[in-house]
Amino acid sequence: MTSKRWAWTVLFALLAGLAWGHAEPVQVVVVVTPAGQELKIDVQMVGEVSTLPIRGAVVEARFYVRTPELQQLLDEGGGSVSRAGDPDLLGVPVASVPLEEPKEGGYRGALPAPPPGDYVLAVVDTTFKGEAAVAAKPLRLPLPPTGATLALQLPETTTPNRYLLYALLGLALPALVGIGFALAARGERKAD
């Protein structure tokens, strides 16, 4: 294989890997710990197939009051919700917090503890424009002093074709500019 062909193969593999970065289910472990008037939320995200940490995600933790409608969604999902699509499919949250990534694949945040009662804790991933993945499980507050650990699964999502095209063009543009400069410089050397 020529070096040019090899370089194109590697470039295509990298672009395809970036474009379909959320094309597998994601295992999510959520640890909720009481801390005074707040709840600390720690989330670990790992690809189910690749077993790699999910880095650079846009993730939010949300609490919802467990309504009969939410209970029906939980019952349909065998006690949890795992859906792609509308990030607001569970309704209006009573509390939410965007999570920061202090370590690779680990996300963290804190929010004021809602009043005692039955809730649904959801993790919402809106990393890619035009898509969202939601995973949720019931949670009763107040928590025991040791907190609670929930295992969730974010479903695989498909980046909409229009966005994928723009993303690939955006990724390819710098490479095309570099190739243009290289060809222009090569042409000048041949002319000399």
Rank of each mutant, 00 (worst) to 15 (best):
L73Q: 14
L90D: 14
S82Y: 09
P145D: 12
A151N: 09
L152D: 13
E76W: 05
R186A: 12
G91A: 05
T159V: 15
A185P: 00
R189Q: 02
P87S: 02
T146H: 09
L89P: 11
D118G: 10
A110F: 08
L183S: 06
S80Y: 10
D118K: 12
A84L: 12
R186K: 08
A113M: 04
P174M: 10
P160T: 03
L74E: 08
V92N: 14
P142R: 12
T127N: 02
A113T: 01
D125R: 07
A135H: 06
A95H: 08
A151P: 03
N161M: 12
T157N: 01
V94N: 01
L70A: 05
V94M: 03
A175N: 09
Y107E: 04
A182H: 07
A133M: 15
P160W: 05
T159N: 12
L143Y: 01
R66Y: 08
T146N: 09
D88S: 13
A175D: 11
R186P: 04
P160H: 03
G187K: 11
G170K: 04
V92I: 14
E100Y: 09
Q72D: 10
E131M: 12
E69Y: 09
P102L: 13
A110R: 08
A132T: 00
A133V: 08
K129E: 11
P155N: 08
A136H: 06
G85P: 00
S80K: 13
S82N: 04
A148P: 00
V123L: 10
P102Y: 07
T146W: 13
D125S: 08
G178C: 15
A132H: 01
T159D: 13
Q71R: 13
E100S: 12
L173E: 10
E104Q: 13
A113D: 01
E188K: 10
A184F: 15
A113W: 03
E188G: 06
Q153W: 06
L121W: 00
P68H: 02
D125H: 07
L90V: 11
L111Y: 09
L99D: 01
F128H: 10
A185C: 07
L74T: 03
V124M: 08
G109I: 06
P116H: 00
R186F: 14
Q72L: 14
G91I: 01
A110H: 09
K137M: 08
N161L: 15
R108W: 01
